[in-house]
Design a protein around this nucleic acid. Sequence first.
DNA 1: GGCCGGCTTGAAACCGCTTGCAATGACGGG
DNA 2: CCCGTCATTGCAAGCGGTTTCAAGCCGGCC
Lengths: 332, 332
Amino acid sequence: MGVTLKDVAERAGVSRSAVSRTFTDGASVSAKTRSKVEKAASELGYAPNALASSLTTGRTKMIGLIANNFHNPLILEVFDLFTRGLQDRGLRPLLVNLSDATDPADSVRMLRQYSVDGVIVASSTLPSSFALAFKAAGLPVVHAFGRYATAPDVHVVGIDNVACGRMAAEALVQRGYGRVAFLGGPRSATSTQDRVAGFLGALAGCPEVHVSASYASAYTFDAGRTEMQQLLQDTPAEAYFCGDDLLAVGALSAIHEAGLSVPGDIGLIGLNDMEMARWQMIGLTTIRQPVAQIIDAAIALVVSTIEDPGRPPETRLFPCRVVERQTLRALP
Amino acid sequence: MGVTLKDVAERAGVSRSAVSRTFTDGASVSAKTRSKVEKAASELGYAPNALASSLTTGRTKMIGLIANNFHNPLILEVFDLFTRGLQDRGLRPLLVNLSDATDPADSVRMLRQYSVDGVIVASSTLPSSFALAFKAAGLPVVHAFGRYATAPDVHVVGIDNVACGRMAAEALVQRGYGRVAFLGGPRSATSTQDRVAGFLGALAGCPEVHVSASYASAYTFDAGRTEMQQLLQDTPAEAYFCGDDLLAVGALSAIHEAGLSVPGDIGLIGLNDMEMARWQMIGLTTIRQPVAQIIDAAIALVVSTIEDPGRPPETRLFPCRVVERQTLRALP
DNA sequence: GGCCGGCTTGAAACCGCTTGCAATGACGGG
DNA sequence: CCCGTCATTGCAAGCGGTTTCAAGCCGGCC
């Protein structure tokens, strides 16, 4: 069940080198040998062993794809785009799930053992130290959805979370909300930190707006719901900027359950524009991340870093925009 | 940037074989050499090249994971469980996205080139010919969420879709619905065919119940919504069994938009119990697939088939159950 | 006709690791 | 004290490819 180079060579009556050459482009083979080899190969159903060739070429064409929250619907889009994008370039994704807090060092070792050509970390909650560990191991790495840095240590592709916070603040102010709040994910996530910073920063110039902040324990529906239930015990704000659509939907649920209406009693704006946000019974006003662009850039960046390992770390940020639906009151 | 067996051997002052043996368990090495080798290895930061060893052992410990609908939230659960399950057994998933109808032969070739040890096809919409192609290529393969067969050609793990159709029918009859209908996914999917067969079959014995069927163009929110909008033009049934939760949510949306209520005017029961089904603003009554069990069994099956390639094809089905929420009227 | 240069080709070394085999050495029993 | 046994070890031959190198071949030119 394994037809090899040698088999093809024998059947075609040529040397193994000849066969190898007809399958590596840019190598010098005469049309005649090539056709002999191709005939033999197709008769035998030969396909070169990619792993064996990786031994000498040093390229496996495999890219490690690392994610840690498999429960956020956004990751669906991410996986779809990543796998397709990689496949289009003849690369294969080796998937790593960091859900259960495994030791980062383990995954680094594992990916080195499998000699992936590069690594893409797709997470807005992992610290940058994580991507750095790959870089330290000599692997080209891109942190997608990572934190912006003026002097980055590794490639970062994503959005400007501070600007998103500002954008949310503006959206709320423009609609005349006077008491607003941030409802974020875990404080430890850089995305949370940046979003709240942008949000508060933008509102620092509006003394007439009252602002507060609280944090859910995770980027999940339940956490968002629980947190909003808490908030409803007290005097809630007029509108909330939720650090993630899942949180927003959880909050929405809590508000409905409390017999209040959105946006009548409370306004809500999320972040991500996950697929479900447009479902009519949700109709979440949110800030859209340009996922496709981010992923495309991440792949492009990892590929060019594989080709030129010396390439200095780079940050690529893509603009977000507010998607207006039905959880904020209309603009005046 | 690649420390090899040889480097470790030299530093430890032993032969390459000795080093190799200390890293393969079950090999005979004295405690003394072992410790020398381990010391040298850790000093050098050595990790054996899994791909190189696969050349001689014939095992890569990589499993191909094939999916074709990256937009159904259920796949999130599937990916999470699969990656974790594989990681727990020291295996790695090589992900293949079949979204864009690529030639099956291509993926077979690709997975053979990468010498995966086995393949898991996770899809309820792919024809079984697909899994068969892998088998024909000599690869151990399990079709998860595939169609039940008494004399299967490949391993199948999943649910009894016919029984699910029956279960849905019973749920509707028990609640006294007199005009019911099936709202399925694409006719070409075996899962659709089986579900409708079970549904209609169960109702064949109830002449007092009026039953009909229609099919959405895909397993998506939009398709479900569009199909329900069509149905609402005419006289809709009292309750629908939707072949997938996504369809059900789309239908739910269409019904709301038409100013009707669920379950007041129309009842809805879905299938899958995707994560969003329990969101309060959806509250979908549905039939739950035991995804975790299915995936666990799929992994177990592929692993044992790798160990014993002669193992005859097997079918493992797991029972589903109705999850009662708020889209069907209460039991009398 | 002879010579030069370029395109093809095969032999052989190597990529990093495993493993069969034979040699070595330690150890216990007779 | 000698010998057989057995665990340990190193050598060397692969695993399935790629690639360097030198040799072979061809046509074209003088």
